[in-house]
Design a protein around this nucleic acid. Structure first.
Lengths: 205, 205
DNA sequence: TAGATTGTTAATCGATTAACAATC
DNA sequence: TAGATTGTTAATCGATTAACAATC
């Protein structure tokens, strides 16, 4: 499945989650495309890759489409997330995720495990979740069946913690460290690299 | 210029900045491609869009290529950045950027202006830069000639602060709020949307 | 000179858009 | 039924890869 399609599906889902979907609100590919900034044909093609969700002449039933997309993206149930590295960024991410989950039951992500190596941080709670020592990662990841991890450690440590997370069963990683991670083919990595984004934007100045 | 090319240029530049470039180290498109995870042809094509930087039979002179790329990406001189929203994420970003700039003179970005609306935060210094009230944004952006801004405010406030930043002369925005921003055509927006990334990754679980 | 690698053109690949028959 | 909009096929567009003459 092309990565761009998955990205757009996530956009459609967010739009539908935010939209006010009264019981029988139908949404057309034209509307959804307008909101997402893509063509109606694009919307229909993207959705058609996963099934026939619409009714000719009417459009897509909003709530149904939202639920189908959540199912496709595996966010119809709560997704357990581990955050590795409780520096300022990691702690900010942990609080962000927990608060969104607490504030809106539809928000699927929940930080169930937090890790650091600093003894001063281990044991401290962040939004009700205790920070564990990195050495406890394999055990915690296995017992909580964590499949998705956020890496927010210094660049020099990123590959090593990634290796440990992957060995423990993690299948997808969001990496904030400015390092290209080497992982086995069954593991997916996305990069959230602030400096790279700033560099790209600087081109247009 | 295709956006993917600009993205790869930024990757090449980072690689060259990190590489140990002795005086006459030459780098081939094969090497650079290997490090960046793209084909040699891709590297040559990308670079050829901006000029002829290589020597046949030899490759690209590392330091020269690095400097050329920095020039193309407008990061051969320090780039002033404003950060709007000093919540946890905003503050973490401010510290990250300042520390990298302080630690490595080659790091081009510098947070020269920080903004929030919380009276408890205004006046507080973050890594030596005082937080200003949002109302001071137009004045500060103009006097510091800030062209690049980071938006790290709550979703509900993102469009409003963007409008003010754009009115003051900002040309490129890195938006951390999960909101599609509407901006005039001469303004570039990149999104750093953690929830969207997590949603995409969840697809592969 | 011989070997290597660029810059560039041509071939391939894949994604987007347009068009329209199917059908609600 | 008439009007609207889907699902899908065909046409277009653009980006990637392969190939090779130019040349250091």
């Amino acid at each position: 499945m092309p990565e761009v399609v998955v990205r757009r599906l996530a956009v459609y889902l967010r739009i539908l989650r935010e939209a006010d979907l009264s019981d029988n609100r139908f949404v057309s590919s034209a509307e959804l495309g307008e909101w997402a900034g893509v063509t109606p044909a694009q919307v229909r093609k993207d959705l058609a890759m996963f099934g026939e969700f619409g009714k000719q002449g009417v459009g897509y039933q909003g709530r149904n489409l939202r639920d189908e997309l959540a199912r496709i993206l595996n966010t119809d149930e709560t997704v357990a997330v581990a955050i590795i590295g409780m520096g300022e960024l990691g702690a900010a991410l942990a609080r962000y995720i927990q608060r969104r989950h607490a504030g809106n039951r539809e928000y699927p992500f929940r930080a169930v495990a937090l890790f650091d190596v600093d003894p001063a941080k281990v044991g401290v709670s962040v939004e009700g979740v205790a920070i564990d020592h990195l050495d406890a990662l394999p055990e915690r990841v296995r017992e909580q069946k964590v499949k998705l991890a956020v890496v927010s450690v210094p660049a020099a440590a990123a590959q090593a913690v990634t290796d440990r997370a992957v060995a423990a069963g993690v299948r997808a990683i969001l990496d904030f460290a400015p390092v290209k991670l080497r992982v086995p083919p069954h593991v997916r990595v996305h990069y959230a690299d602030v400096s790279l984004e700033l560099h790209q934007l600087a081109f247009y100045l």
